[in-house]
Design a protein around this nucleic acid. Sequence first.
RNA 1: GGGGGAGUAGUUAAGUUGGUUAUAACGCCGGCCUGUCACGCCGGAGGCCGCGGGUUCAAGUCCCGUCUCUCCCGCCA
Length: 591
Amino acid sequence: MTMMRTHHCGQLSLSQVGDTVTLNGWVDKVRNLGGFLFLDLRDRFGLTQCVSEGESESLSNRTLQELKAESCVQIRGCVRARPQGMKNLEIATGAIEVLIQEVTVWSKADPLPFQFGQESSEQLRLKHRYLDLRDPSLRQRIVARSQLTSSLRKLLEEHDFLDLETPYLYKSTPEGAREYLIPARVSPGQFYALPQSPQLFKQMYMVGGMDRYYQLVKAFRDEDLRADRQPEFTQVDCELSFVNEVAVRQIFTDVVRRLVNGFLGRECVTDIPQMSFEEALHAYGNDKPDTRFEMLLQDCSELWRDSSFQAFSAVVAAGGVVNAIVVEGQAAHMSRKDLDALNQEALNLGAKGLAWAKCNGTELQDLQSPLKKFVDEPLWSQLQVQLGVKSGDLLLFCAGPFDLVKAVLGKIRLSLGERLGYMDPQQLKFLWVVDFPLLEQDEETGRWAARHHPFCMPQAQDLPLLRTQPEKVRACAYDLVCNGYEVAGGSIRNHDLAVQKQVFAAIGLSEEEAESKFGFLLEALRYGPPPHGGIAFGWDRFVMLMTACDAIRDVIAFPKTLSGQCLMTQSPAPVTQQELDTLGVVHRVTS
RNA sequence: GGGGGAGUAGUUAAGUUGGUUAUAACGCCGGCCUGUCACGCCGGAGGCCGCGGGUUCAAGUCCCGUCUCUCCCGCCA
């Protein structure tokens, strides 16, 4: 019996000329020139041009013409060199073609709901995701994902990590993200929860002496979706024993550097710089700075304190701030309409407004701005010096409470960066953000909560402040940021029972509550836990950045829409009353 | 929970101030064509203008509601 396949569609070259081969794949395109017909056959590996000269009665060009795009076929034929000048340099198999001798149709395809290589609605492609996967552009991203995963596993295993599993059926831990609940049939009225992260299990592995753990694992969060957030997503979850912050960052700088450079085939990442949370917030307005461009947020509150511009001086007097960004060389390129749009964006984000100033020269008289009448010579020269303004620059000012100003200008900076083409997806700027606050205060209730999670180790020198000034306590926590996305985050954990109890106390968790929620952790910490810490990568985001996409849907084979639907399978879907009864779930019908 | 954008042939889009038979490209169907690789040429079919209501002599176009997709805010320890 002959082989079902002797080669794949990306394989044949001049060295097989004269061989009889059998290929399998999908009909990419038929070009019938009359007595002469070309059929492009495509599989995951590539595309091979097959040709028929229509001599045979049994295999007329008419028969071949009837093979519709995306039909699945087998073609047996003889490899021959293409004539001079007919080679296609764009494809790997472009030097040869296969003279068709026999075609087996495995299955026919109806006319397609969308065409490959052309724009079409994502909705339609998601409904027929199995077809979209055949489109080389999605296929390449999914293949890239597999390659990255494979390299990552090798790198982690080189660093002595063990691939270990953790349960998906866990229990609800009300803090943090909303969870997906699963009724436990054999314990009526009780529920499992899908884990938002395997955090405590990996710590248990460390207490259990496994030393280094990793897992490519799904995590589940029942929160609203975004372009970079799916309800189920893949983490590269890692944990290490006998490490401090520096060691963790060192190891993962090495892993990321080799992973990225190996994938891109160029020295894209050399080292990964560090920035404190505080510096990131001041200069970029958020904790995940996009460092592909500058345009930093600059404080100029003091310069306005005594100015005649009430809107700013009053803000400063009330303890607020005035920040500016310098948009280089854009004075002449921003129309009134553009500036109005930016102002509107600032208003939508809660600011009182965005003041602009065009520096058409270096003198005060060259200044064009609604603020001009409030700016005198001394203020102007101070602004120029402090902000580093040059002729031709556009200045944008925002005044108000610190957090608001940072948030607004941080977002304005990003939308300007986008407009001005400063966010080149081919460029990857990694950054460690460090020295995060351990706790954050709920604005409404005034209660303190863990910023990352309640198992983070506080920085030793800040520990005495935990009772007196909890806002000043920094955590041994770090995020890996790339191009404005948080791609990984982690911390050193508490292996010291006493410190863990202090943290629980600081977030208002009573001993009883701590015992009922995390009793197994507290107990484990009594039996010789090693110092340990770890990190978890948002793998979808990482792959998205590596493939220069802007939504994680683009690198997930079967993603959900923003309303959590799978358009292909139509999930979620209703269940019968009988199923609910079996589970002991009371379903209240809402009108 | 809130705000913005979108929904017109199989697909992607155009559609003016509300006014004749709703256009185009690709795809599909039929015919011709021996070197194409976005093949070319000739012809043809194809429409619940997302859905429901309203205004009007007249609605793809205006108004209200609703559904779906998308982007953002809240949210995401």
